[in-house]
């Protein structure tokens, strides 16, 4: 049985109009998506801004209310739980945010930031709490003596690790990482990504890795889901997606990644033009009359594509 299973999840926002502000239509931020995560793997959710990937992550976290669907975590539906049961499960799911500059309260000490989830869920004496916080700070490679410092005294990469330490304190099983390195410089990015892989092994973590950066997704993820306008267009292993993309949108995304070899410049430009003309010419093949994608169909054991 899957570790986390999302079934037909929908998140709609109403659009109001007319004289009495009645609901006239919906913005379908997440439109009927289903996917599952196995324990210990890293699942990548990719797409461009506004595709619904962040909304999906936040809905699983319970930060956004789902319109319908199921989120089965260890076989229990998080969406149908009452508040108290949900909070118990919330311990097992933690989130890492994009911006290490704004996601840490600047007026709190590192000790208070990292201990916050502990204080919500466990009753610890101050000494135990301090010990635990220091343990995790050391785990993320920060000086345990730094617990009385404030966030602004740390660099971007260090702050992101404070955020990770905070997420780890409750020994979560699933971590939802929403663009965890997008705000960081490449060398710092490398540091955080390496580190996320280390703790994954050490704590047997499962990651839902949300990103727009296909290079990072390829580097980090076992399986990948590609989202477009709230729906999945393709899902498969890293190899399926990068070496054998089937949906035109996936092809377009992948051809848009800049090639690191300047020798390939001309080819890359040509490839992009080809795919763009294919995108224009075969639009009807991949999108229905409403401009929506079709339902996912398996083309191999691991590879699903939205085709008619």
């Amino acid at each position: 049985m899957a570790f986390l299973k999302v079934n037909n999840l929908k998140v709609y926002y109403p659009i109001r109009g007319g004289f009495f502000r009645r609901v006239v239509a919906h913005v379908k931020a997440v439109d009927d998506i289903s996917f599952e995560l196995n324990q210990g793997e890293t699942y990548g959710l990719v797409g461009e801004s506004g595709c619904g990937k962040t909304t999906t992550g936040r809905t699983i976290m319970g930060l956004i209310k789902a319109t319908s669907g199921e989120v089965l975590f260890e076989n229990q539906d998080l969406l149908k739980m009452n508040r108290r049961d949900f909070n118990q499960h919330r311990k097992d799911i933690q989130m890492i945010f994009q911006d290490p500059y704004s996601s840490l309260n600047p007026r709190k000490r590192v000790l208070d930031i990292v201990a916050e989830p502990l204080r919500n869920f466990e009753r610890l004496s101050p000494a135990e709490e301090k010990k635990k916080v220091q343990f995790y700070l050391e785990k993320v490679g920060l000086n345990p003596e730094a617990i009385y410092n404030y966030p602004h005294e740390f660099s971007g990469g260090q702050r992101q690790r404070i955020g990770i330490a905070r997420a780890l304190t409750l020994k979560p099983k699933l971590i939802i990482a929403d663009e965890p390195v997008s705000a960081l410089d490449v060398s710092v990015q490398a540091q955080v990504l390496n580190f996320m892989q280390d703790i994954q092994k050490e704590f047997n973590l499962t990651y839902l890795f949300i990103s727009h950066d296909l290079g990072i997704i390829q580097h980090m993820c076992d399986r990948i889901g590609i989202m477009y306008r709230g729906q999945f267009v393709e899902e498969g292993t890293s190899r399926d997606i990068y070496t054998n993309p089937q949906h035109i949108y996936t092809k377009r995304l992948i051809s848009a990644i800049p090639d690191i070899n300047p020798e390939n410049r001309e080819n890359q430009m040509k490839l992009r033009q080809e795919i763009n003309s294919e995108y224009k010419n075969s639009y009807d093949k991949y999108f229905n009359a409403e401009g929506k994608v079709y339902n996912l169909k398996p083309i191999s054991d691991t590879h699903l594509v939205a085709l008619p």
């Binding site: 490398a190 390496n194 290079g215 580097h219 980090m220």
Partner: peptide
């Protein structure tokens, strides 16, 4: 050279990325 080694590229899947020690 460090900069090149720290970017995830298609050839380095799942390998460790190079980290420049210290901070800017």
């Amino acid at each position: 050279r460090s900069l090149f080694n720290s970017i995830p590229s298609s050839t380095s899947t799942k390998d460790r990325l190079h980290v420049i020690q210290g901070i800017v």
